[in-house]
């Protein structure tokens, strides 16, 4: 090479005064909040530390995670089913899916949770009969079925199905119609096309909002405390109702929720990367480089 080497440019960098101002403002604000917390007589850090790993708290964390997992699995499965129904050529299925989404998105989650908690008041017995006969396939008192976490799981999953359905539907519609044509031209039936070609591609669009859904769900489980859902929130409420250590116990719950959400956020990053295969734009860049 005969090219002569050029010396690197020496120039005075731009001064970012705005950054220093912002740092100062944030530091002052943080100091104010921190000192206010330290001076508060009710935060009681030693009590927080004491309760953080108590058995009833850990049991509540386990139930919260279990509720989140079951509700998301059922919610996602139901959501995919509803989305496919919604996009089906069959008008009955299309209408049914639309009506389901309309109802479960149209009423507050809290109302649905309380409703399932008191289902026994509406329907004293749950009965399934052979149509047009009195022969019962299933017949139980409602309160014998709706035990433990069952009403909470039902309410959370059905609600999640409605939201997941919309997310999945959006993901399916985002896949180019040429993909369906190519699959059909290869002799693939509609169901196979959906499973092998469309849904895997839709996942790239579906994964980020579904990750948010998992995080939202984890926090929404706190709502089931209104029907004593045995979750983390129920656990701390039960204890502070007796010992009045409201603030420290809420702080314990907040710390756990924050920790669980942080882990989920990390998992979300890896899931999104997995479904971005074949798309260079999503593989380049990112948080850890």
């Amino acid at each position: 090479m005969t090219q002569d080497t050029h010396p690197p440019i020496k120039a005075v960098p731009v001064r970012h005064y705005g950054r220093w101002l912002a740092a100062l403002a944030v530091a002052l604000l943080a100091y104010q909040i921190f000192s206010a917390l330290v001076r508060s007589p009710n935060l009681e850090p030693d009590i927080i530390a004491d309760y953080l790993f108590k058995d009833f708290v850990l049991e509540g964390v386990r139930t919260t995670l279990l509720l989140t997992a079951i509700a998301m699995v059922l919610g996602t499965a139901g959501g995919v089913l509803l989305a496919v129904m919604r996009l089906s050529a069959n008008p009955v299925l299309r209408f049914t899916a639309a009506a389901f989404v309309w109802f479960f998105r149209g009423t507050p989650l809290l109302v649905q949770i309380v409703f399932f908690g008191f289902l026994g008041a509406l329907l004293p017995r749950l009965t399934i009969t052979v149509p047009f006969t009195d022969i019962a396939i299933f017949d139980q008192p409602t309160n014998a079925v709706m035990v433990g976490i069952v009403p909470a799981v039902l309410a959370l999953s059905l609600n999640e199905m409605a939201y997941a359905a919309e997310i999945v539907r959006g993901g399916i519609l985002a896949v180019d119609s040429g993909q369906t044509e190519a699959a059909h031209a290869l002799g693939m039936k509609p169901a196979l096309t959906m499973r092998r070609i469309i849904l895997p591609q839709a996942m790239r669009v579906i994964a980020p909002p579904m990750g948010n859904e998992v995080i939202t769900m984890l926090k929404s489980t706190a709502l089931v405390s209104v029907i004593a859902g045995r979750d983390l929130m129920t656990a701390v409420q039960t204890v502070y109702a007796q010992n009045y250590k409201v603030i420290p116990l809420l702080a314990v719950a907040a710390i756990w929720y924050l920790a669980m959400v942080s882990v989920l956020s990390l998992a979300q990053y890896f899931v999104e990367r997995r479904f971005g295969r074949g798309h260079q734009a999503t593989q380049r860049g990112g948080m850890f480089r």
């Binding site: 190519a182 031209a185 070609i197």
Partner: peptide
């Protein structure tokens, strides 16, 4: 069938 826009499965 071969399409104008290829329509390969990107995944």
């Amino acid at each position: 069938m071969v399409f104008q826009r290829f329509n390969l499965f990107p995944h």
